[in-house]
Each structure stands twice: as C-alpha cells, then as structure tokens.
C-alpha cells in the first residue's frame, strides 16, 4: 500500500469514525444522566440529516442545520418527557426495549414524512468533485468540516461539564442522584436536558456527514449498533474516550476493507465488541473500578 493510499484510508476511516463518535457521545451523555442506553440515538442522526435536507430546499445551509439541531433537540425532549420519564422505574432490560421501541417509532415516522429515498445534504463548501490535497492524499473538504465540528463538540462538552454550573449539576446527578436532589438540583430537568443535548449533537453529526454518507430513513439501526460498540469500547460514561474509540473503529473498518471483502466490515466490529466484553468490559480507556459500579 502506497503512502498516499494509506492516507486515503485513514481519512475515510476518520470520516466514518466521527459519525460513530457522534452517536457514542450521545449514548454517553444519556447514560451518565440516567443509566439508560438509548438505542434511538441513531435516529437522532437520521432526523438531523433529513430535517436539514428539507429546510435547505428553501434557505441557506447554516440556518437549515441550526433548525435541524433545534428541532431534533425538541424531539429528544419530548421523547424524554412522554416515554422515558414514565417508564424509569422498569428494569434495565425494560428500558432497552422502550428505547428500541422509540427508535422504531421514529424510523416509521421518518418513512411516512420523507419516504424511502436516499438524500444528501449540500456540501458545506465546494461540491462532490472539489478536493483538498493533504500530504498527497486528495480528500473532500467535507472531511475537514467533520473533523473540525467533532473537535469543537468534544472541546465544548469538556468545558460545559467542567466549568458551567449546569454541566456540574448534570455530573452530580450521574454521581449521586439523591445527593443532587438534596442540593436542590431538579434532577428531572437534568435528565431532560441530557436527552436534548444528545439529540442535538446526534443531529449535528447527521448534518455534517450527510453530504458524504447520505441520509436514509433506516440508517439509524446500523449507527445505533456501531455507536454502541464504540461506547463500550471507550468505556461507558466517558464521552471523550468515545471519540477516540469511534475513530479507532472507523480506521479498523476502513483498513479491513483493503484486506478483506467489504461484506466482512460489520463482522469485524461485532467481533471487536465481543472481545472487549470478554476481555475488558470496562472498555479500553475505562477503569475497572468505574465499570464495577455500573448496572451493566
């Protein structure tokens, strides 16, 4: 494999990996606030792409993306207050079934609203034929957009959780819900906020990758599984590690295509999940101690 080819594979891997990371970050935020694995996370990505596509038909790209993020956040908030809040008392398995149900609901709604056509948002800059050359490899400028926005989200989340009172309060809820209540934190609103945040981040991811990977009403299922693998790989509850794990899985998949038939791509990620679950269930970046305190 030539050096340029290698770079090409790396960038392809990073692109796919970023979208996995977006989904995994969403899993993490909700998991931290509630202990729930939200399997409807992939649908937020789909909704973001679809809504932005629709709005971009009659307005510039930027407001279309902003609207898509806001509307998807609102959907996340409604899902939390209508379904999740009422069913919080059920078992872990029960909650998984509930979120899978929600994901089916969203998928069917999308099919009804948008039909089964594959859509792609406009390129943020340039078009599908424009490319920039980095170290000899030719890549789409959209890849740079993806990388830039992923970086901004990770940095933004870090600052939010570390330095804002609301971010600290969300962490407090995940560490000790009862103590958070005693401090006067309204834990219900924090849970709601975590759904809004996850949905919004998922939607933004759905917008930036749409020009390259397209948007389809049923794309969420695959993303939910890959994002879940990435979240486990990174160690559940650790949003920053999820990004690293996402990029890693993207790269592994990308390079596997060069040596194995395309069809084996998904098999590889499932094998990775199984290996991680057996060998180090706390994730490659997670501490054993942290995972022993979790319900899974």
């Amino acid at each position: 494999m030539s050096g340029e080819q290698t770079l090409q594979y790396i960038f392809a891997g990073i692109t796919v990996g970023s979208i996995y990371a977006f989904v995994a970050i969403g899993y993490n935020i909700i998991y931290n606030a509630t202990g729930i694995i939200n399997f409807a996370q992939g649908e937020f990505v789909m909704l973001g792409g679809m809504i932005a596509y629709t709005f971009s038909g009659f307005m510039p790209l930027l407001p279309a993306v902003v609207l898509a993020v806001l509307i998807t956040s609102a959907v996340g908030s409604v899902i939390e207050s209508v379904f999740i809040r009422r069913m919080r008392k059920t078992s872990v398995l029960g909650m998984i079934v509930v979120t899978i149900g929600i994901s089916i609901l969203l998928r069917e709604a999308a099919l009804y609203i948008w039909d089964e056509q594959i859509r792609a948002l406009r390129f943020f800059t340039g078009s599908e034929i424009s490319s920039v050359s980095i170290l000899g490899a030719r890549i789409s400028p959209q890849v740079l957009w993806i990388l830039g926005i992923t970086t901004i989200i990770v940095a933004g989340l870090f600052l939010f959780f570390k330095f804002t009172l609301t971010g600290q309060a969300m962490r407090a809820c995940s560490e000790n819900l009862r103590a958070a209540k005693l401090c006067g934190i309204r834990t219900d609103s924090m849970v709601n906020l975590s759904f809004m945040l996850s949905a919004g981040i998922g939607a933004l991811g759905g917008c930036v990758v749409s020009p390259l990977t397209q948007t389809h009403y049923a794309m969420g299922t695959d993303l939910a599984i890959k994002g879940f693998i990435v979240a486990i790989l990174g160690g559940l509850g650790n949003a920053i590690a999820a990004v690293a794990a996402g990029l890693l899985l993207g790269l592994i998949e990308s390079f596997s295509i060069s040596i194995l038939p395309m069809a084996y791509k998904d098999v590889i990620s499932i094998i990775i999940l199984l290996i991680i679950l057996v060998v180090k269930p706390s994730g490659i970046f997670g501490s054993r101690q942290a995972s022993s305190m979790k319900d899974y």
Partner: peptide, 10 residues
Amino acid sequence: PEGRQLFPAM
C-alpha cells in the same frame, strides 16, 4: 445525609 453522600469524583 447519612453516610455523607458526596459527589466522589468531583
């Protein structure tokens, strides 16, 4: 509260 109930990782 009983048993302090702090936020241990903060």
